[in-house]
């Protein structure tokens, strides 16, 4: 090429090349879809992780001779996964054919409703999981006999109700009530750990779109 590149650059662009700017619009179509897909993907991964965890818990509990507790914990996890899936089905019904703003708004709203419904179940789930864990510690294998022996040896005056130390029952009862009371916050923290950044991005995008439309 004979011409220096500076000359080509100066001379060669036609009016049409630089004046025909792409039409602005549907700014967020792709971004909205990516966000929604990300939430759905994370939910799916979380679901798979819950099911795997349920199976692992069951197997581990069988090994430590606490099969009943393992079965209960696994059933609780699978029940939660089933309920969450039912809730998320509503999210899948949001019509992507809507404009990206409407779509994201509706998606966010449906998601919030689904999480609020999950929170009702969670109020029972966390305390039950805690009680199951406590039960595992006490009853797994030969633990009951060993722990009772050690406790009576260390604290000879300890009061037992139904084979369980009263002080332990009170402590577990107290913690269970606290967990039930704070379950909402624990759930929000839990959800925040997994979906926090994506939800933040979702809400920022909606706010951005609202500002854009002003």
């Amino acid at each position: 090429m004979e011409k220096p590149i500076e000359t080509i650059w100066k001379e060669a662009f036609s009016e049409r090349d630089l004046k025909e700017v792409p039409r602005l619009g549907n700014f967020y179509d792709q971004e909205s879809q990516q966000l929604v897909d990300k939430v759905k993907r994370k939910f799916k991964n979380n679901l798979v992780a819950t099911v795997v965890m349920a199976i692992v818990i069951l197997i581990v509990h069988m090994f430590i001779e606490a099969a009943w507790q393992g079965a209960i914990a696994a059933a609780l996890l699978l029940g939660l996964a089933w309920y969450s899936t039912r809730q998320m089905r509503r999210v899948h019904t949001v019509n992507p054919g809507l404009g990206s703003y409407q779509y994201l708004r509706l998606f966010d709203q449906t998601l919030r409703e689904a999480l609020a419904k999950n929170m009702i179940v969670i109020r029972f789930f966390y305390p039950l999981i805690f009680l199951t864990s406590m039960s595992t510690i006490w009853y797994a294998g030969n633990n009951e006999a060993i722990l009772t022996g050690k406790l009576t040896e260390t604290f000879p005056d300890l009061l037992f109700v139904g084979g369980l130390p009263l002080i332990g029952l009170i402590a577990v009862g107290g913690i269970t009530v606290l967990i039930a009371y704070f379950s909402g916050r624990i759930y929000k923290w839990d959800v925040g750990l997994i979906y926090g950044r994506t939800f933040k991005k979702l809400r920022e995008t909606i706010a951005d779109m609202e500002q854009l439309n002003e």
């Binding site: 090429m1 011409k3 590149i5 080509i8 650059w9 060669a12 662009f13 036609s14 049409r16 090349d17």
Partner: peptide, 11 residues
Amino acid sequence: RAFENEEINQL
């Protein structure tokens, strides 16, 4: 071939 001029496309 984004531009009308072939030289600029080559560049």
